[in-house]
Design a protein around this nucleic acid. Structure first.
Lengths: 210, 210
DNA sequence: CCAAAGAATGAATCAATATTCACTAATAGC
DNA sequence: GCTATTAGTGAATATTGATTCATTCTTTGG
């Protein structure tokens, strides 16, 4: 009898796994899942391609995990924004802004999470992600209706519409040509864009121009 | 001296080309560009794979042409809707509804036109398509502001936001699971969805609940 | 019917990647 | 240092589709 997994080894393996995950994230942020090739990920992580398969069942599984981690981060941010004090409308505005600004800061990743075609397992994660968002906004709208700052409406449908509206308002400008990092001018334009989207969304929700 | 291209031949070739185009459209409508393989298209069109290359330079070129044809059809519909009599708001509503309903009737095609990742040549067509839409809506918004039925705002930015909002409100629900043909219940839901989107958009634009 | 020219064919080739696996290196406990 | 066991490697293989091209079929004008 000889080899038995020891703590040191467990840590080393965990570190390697983590490194692979991070490099995958980097690749995706750079050019989407489509662009994240196993060979490139392996290179970045300083491991052999085969090693990746000792840590993850398949590329699909690896991607699904990265997707889950990335969306969880986004959802946490929005959840936090919705948990601040203030009226439902104010909190919704904060959350939408959070969402939009993050997406514009990392447009490729946002696009990958929102709209890039992905394998079935990853698509499953996306479904959960969408549902989570819709649920968050739905709850806030419900509160707004109770508070009286949002007119009566179907919260589920409005929240779906809301998520859709922001998502695509962002996917549009970001998806095709603009992959470069934001210049000053662009940053300014982005601020403008975010304001317009938020304004549009809040109006769409409340019917109140401000 | 012997063979010279005759009218009959010209027609026959044109017919074959047309048939290939139609079958490509079918394939795309069924599963997006990603899913439209040359071999499958050839099968549907009853030609050999090689034949496709006698009619089109490459897959990319074929796709670009199909894209152009498909978007032209969509743009014509919206243009027509915007050309009816009525206030700018009414005409915009009609146009948005037209857009949304068509997209929901052919969700996969809509998704392909709006958001599916495509080759550079096709992406170029998409850019033109987006610009055309933005231009149409922008003009209508400008008219609305002049008429006084839409508050003052940046027409370019609002129209971009508008296009984005609808597009993604539709891409969201349609992209993942629902590929099946609409059942009665779904049709009803779709009507509801379209109403909500339109309502949301018009409010976002005018700040008026109705 | 014939010869020249073009059109159509589809099996073979090429290309791009994911995945495997026979082999080597490292580790653990003695 | 030795051996059992697991980790790591990366060249070879498998897969999926686009594209090519030598060959066959059609058409045309005489």
């Amino acid at each position: 009898m000889a080899y038995r997994e020891t703590e040191k080894m467990r840590l080393r393996k965990a570190a390697a796994r983590q490194r692979i995950a991070e490099c995958t994230y980097e690749c995706v942020a750079e050019g989407g899942f489509r662009n994240a090739r196993i060979t490139r990920i392996a290179q970045l992580a300083n491991v052999a391609t085969g090693t990746i398969y000792r840590h993850f069942e398949s590329k699909e599984d690896l991607f699904a995990e990265i997707f889950r981690q990335a969306t969880q981060r986004e959802i946490d941010k929005v959840t936090k924004a919705l948990a601040t004090p203030g009226s439902a409308t104010e909190r919704l505005e904060k959350a939408l802004r959070q969402f939009a600004e993050r997406a514009l800061k990392g447009p490729v990743m946002a696009w990958s999470l929102i709209a890039e075609p992905v394998d079935p397992k990853v698509e499953e994660e996306r479904l959960a992600y969408r549902k989570a968002y819709a649920g968050l906004f739905e709850q806030a709208i419900r509160e707004g209706i109770e508070e009286g700052c949002i007119p009566d409406q179907n919260p589920r449908q409005s929240s779906t519409c809301l998520v859709g509206a922001i998502a695509e308002s962002l996917v549009g400008p970001l998806s095709p040509t603009q992959i470069g990092q934001a210049t000053e001018k662009e940053t300014e334009n982005n601020d403008q864009l975010v304001n317009t989207i938020i304004c549009f969304c809040i109006q769409g929700l409340t019917g109140t121009r401000r």
